[in-house]
Each structure stands twice: as C-alpha cells, then as structure tokens.
Design a protein around this nucleic acid. Structure first.
Lengths: 287, 287
DNA sequence: TGTTTCGTGAAAATTAATTTCTCAGTGATG
DNA sequence: CATCACTGAGAAATTAATTTTCACGAAACA
C-alpha cells in the first residue's frame, strides 16, 4: 500500500539498482507516470527487465500497475517531498501550503482510531458541561472551535485559553463535567496540571495531542495526532488542519449520537439567523 | 486536466456509449485502475476498441494513460462523489470529513488567483494597522486566525468578532489602516456597511468571501472562495479549511515580503517561549 | 426510400511488457 | 589463488496487451 515509504527505502531493503530507480522515479514522477517502460529504462540507464523487476520489488504486479500506484500517491504524498525550496512566488506558496494541508489530513486519516473517537464522542454527548482548554494561538483556535461546533448541538460548553483560568475552572469543575484539551506540542505543563487535578477529582479528560507526550500521559483518553511539521519556520502549521478535522469528526459523532436533540438545536439557530438576515435559508449556520 | 468533470459530463458532450462507460468507470474506479482493457470491456459489455475510443474522447492518449489519470484524480476527487449516505460509523464519518476537507482544499487551489493574493499580501505588509473582521463562529475563527498569524510577523493587528464594535472600529480607522474581512456567506450586511464606510474614507479593504456576493461587491479587493457546501446539515463546514488555507497563504506571503522583519519577530517569540517552557526549541511557535 | 454519416465490433497489426536465457561480477571456499 | 556457487544484469525471444484497420449496421437526413 504505502508505495512512498517503499520508494524512500528508509529500511534499506532495496538493492543498489532498485534504489537507483526509486530515486529516479521520485525525482520526476510526472515523467514516469507518462512514460513507457523502455523510455524510463533508457533515461534511467538500465534495461527494461530491470524496471519490471524493480516494480515487483516495490510490491506492484508490473509496470502498468506501478504507474497507477504512483499516480495514486502522487497527488497527496509525493509533491510534498520535493526538497524544501524557500520560495516566495504566490503560486508556489499556495501550492505548498495546500499540499501540506492535504498531506496532514492524509496522515491523520491513517492514524485515527475510530474506537477512541467514538469513546470521546460519547463522553462529550453524556456530559452536563464541557470544558475545552487550549492556548498559544493554534490550540486556542481548536478549543474555541470545539465550543463553536458543540454549542450548536445542544452541549453546554465553555472554551478557555487562559492558563490561570484553566486551573481555576479545573478546580471548580462540578459533577458531570467532561474536559477536552488540545496541545500540539504536548508539553504544556500548565495543562498537565489541570488534567491531573481533574482526573484526581473524577472528571473525565480527553486530550488531542502528540502521543507519548506529558499531556497524553496525563489525560484519561488521548486522541493521538502525530504529524511531522516542516522545518520552514514560516510554515509550521499544517498540523492545525488535522486538529480541526478531529474537531469536526467529534462534533459529527456527537451530533449523530443524539440526532433529534442536535437537529432541534440547529433548527432553532437557523431560524434565528434567517429571521435576522435575509430569507435565504441555504446559507451556512452562522457565517 | 479535469478528468472528473469530463466523466460526469455535465455539458452532455459525450456520446451514449461514452456516457455508459463513464458511468461504469465512476461506479468502480478501483476496479478500472487495476484491470486490463479487455476485462473492462467485457464487464461493461462493450468491445475493447470502444474503450480505447472512449479514453481518447475524454482527453487521454490511450487506455494506460486513462488509468493513470484516473488514479491521479481518485484520491481527492472521486471518493467525494459517492452518494451522500448519512452514516454514523466513526470510520465513515472520519473518512467523509477528511475527504471533504481535502476536496475543499483541492477546489480552492484551482480557483486561487496568485496576483490577488500577492496584492493582498502587499497591502497587509504595508499597513500600519490591520483590522480583521468576521463573526458567526466560522468567520470569526478566520479573523482571529489572521490575528494569530500576522502578529507573529510584526504586524499590528486587531481581530474583532463583534458587529457593533466592527462598525465603531471602521469609523475610527486611522490613516495607514488596512481592513481584511471574512464572510463565508457573503451576506453579512453589517460587514458590508463597515466596508462601505472604510472605502469611503480611503481605507483599503480585502474580503475573503463568495464571489458575486454583497460583501465581495463592497470590498476593494476580493479573494473569492467559491465552494459548494454539502447538503448534510451536520457537516456544513469543509469550507473552513479553504479559508484557513487562504489565511496561511497570506501569512506566508506577508512573511516573505519582508523576511528580515518577520524572522526577527519570530525569533523573539520563540526565545520567549523556550525560556518559559522547557528547552526544546523544535516545538511549534505557540502550541 | 436511398444515401450519408456515425459509431460499433471483429480481426489484424502493432506496440509494449515480460519471461527466459546467458553472461558478468562478487564472494566464499577449498 | 583458483574455482564454484550465487546474485543480478541485459539481450533476445516470447507473450500479452493495446491500437488500428476495416467492414458492417443503425440512425439521420434528403
């Protein structure tokens, strides 16, 4: 399945010739997907049979199959690994950001655990009150977004991005409260303290964070999100798309867990919006 | 390029046989990408030459090329158009949301105008003060995110999600201010009023919104974002990913427009964060 | 109703991919 | 140090697949 990993050959399984071909392929995927086996063989300086063998070695049934697999992974996977050339041309910046965002979503999809998502959704659905914590700009967006999505579904939720407040809220949490926190680094020690405090008091805690991090260790239920951020200091944030997707997924699962209640609340919000704006009810719920 | 549109044949250019094949292909892309021309011909009940002709008609050089193009578009484009079956299984909800998010990014990429992005970035870069407006949950996230991204680059920026405040801020805007607003519906008439007020006073205005909408008409420079939202009332928000990507792109262009200044500010922020946390400086800038 | 045009499938031809076979290089072993 | 086994490469041959050609039939139009 994961042709890309085979081609990069991190484990060093490929022979010298195969590595040579793999590198050649990675260098110019577009050429390869459009070429015949003999064209490729000539350009790479090998014989056609070697190409066939290479295709088999990387798990394809033949050259045609290899081309298809390659094309399939190209869109998301491969553009991404072009050497990180600092560019400032708008087209390239746009392409780079969009590709990385898609890649982040792609990576996320591979690592999501449906059972955990379900468990988290049921905790949230059953909560009398939800506390959402996250700070620092990116995580605060996620925590606010949880508030934005869940209140529409009839959840009582408060989002806090203030470390001092977080601690007080944690200490004051009442019976029936569920906490959900976001930390992209997983090293927000204030957040860890909040989680410990709440767990000690029997408040269920959910963390969206890196697995193996202090925050993950402190939370009752972790939804791990492990993505490699790029090195470019100006572009550190494709991870946000993955976090946002997790929020969306949780919100949907919460909605489906109690469909009638969610429908009713959404309808009320919509009516209110339509009344206070023009009558076009095909619009988004809340701009 | 856009094989998907050709296959759906909205314009009715394809002949009866081609339509039949197109439908057959769309029904089971995975089979087609893995099959030979004769297998496909047999299953679809046509002759191999018809398949070749079909491939030519949809803009490919032959059957192999068709398979490659098909595989290329599959990842993002094609899963999306499976009939919208309301499901509540975590795997399917996750896949649905992630696919739609990727699709939104894909659509965005096709419609972005680099020149406009560049123009917007230069306006923002040159501004003495930036006002970011957006309300309603989704657009407010975008406006806050602009604040979050741009302050790091040394921009003076304030994000407001309060319609009453927006109006006052607009009226009070000083020389050198640039406004950037977000409205997914494009029908936020309070926002339109703000834009008109500022344009009348010579304040440059940028809008992230639907083209052809009142907000787009009122803004000096519009970055159009036109995406079809799904019909499912619980999942109205894949558009946010596209808006977020535009924010990312703008932030990057602003950063590159004055690299030294941005670098310096980022470094100061990073130092401060590292000092107040553990010493791992490979972390994100601000969780 | 005849004629033209368009499109289809059968068969042939062509092109491309794969298998087989042989040979060269490498490393182990006597 | 020589030889033998082993691995892996390319040449040629084979096989498989695709494409072209051609003939026929249906539909449209005169």
């Amino acid at each position: 399945m994961d042709l890309y990993h085979v081609l990069t050959d991190d484990e060093g399984r490929l022979s010298a010739m195969d590595r040579k071909l793999a590198q050649f392929v990675l260098q110019d995927v577009d050429f390869v997907t459009g070429s015949s086996i003999s064209e490729l063989a000539e350009r790479a300086g090998v014989s056609p049979p070697s190409v066939t063998r290479f295709c088999r070695h990387v798990g394809c049934s033949g050259f045609s199959d290899f081309k298809v697999q390659l094309a399939r992974m190209t869109y998301v996977g491969l553009r991404y690994l072009r050497p990180e050339v600092p560019t400032s041309a708008p087209e390239e910046v746009a392409e780079d950001i969009i590709t990385k965002a898609q890649n982040a979503l792609f990576q996320l999809h591979k690592q999501l655990d449906p059972a955990r998502l379900n468990e988290a959704a049921h905790l949230l659905r059953g909560a009398g009150f939800i506390l959402a914590f996250g700070s620092g700009g990116n995580s605060s967006m996620i925590s606010n977004e949880l508030q934005n999505r869940l209140f529409r579904l009839g959840c009582n939720i408060h989002s806090s991005n203030d470390r001092a407040m977080d601690l007080m809220l944690s200490a004051a949490a009442t019976e029936g409260t569920v906490a959900i926190v976001s930390s992209m680094t997983g090293r927000d020690m204030d957040l860890v303290r909040c989680l410990e405090l709440m767990r000690a008091r029997g408040v269920p805690t959910i963390a969206l964070t890196q697995s193996g991090s202090p925050v993950a260790a402190a939370a009752g239920l972790t939804i791990p999100i492990d993505l490699a951020e790029g090195r470019n200091i100006f572009r550190p944030t494709s991870t946000r798309y993955a976090y946002l997707a997790v929020v969306d997924i949780l919100a949907n699962l919460v909605a489906y867990a109690d469909r009638p209640r969610a429908m009713a609340v959404l309808r009320r919000i919509k009516e209110e919006l339509v009344r206070s704006r023009d009558g076009d009810d095909r619009q988004l719920l809340g701009d």
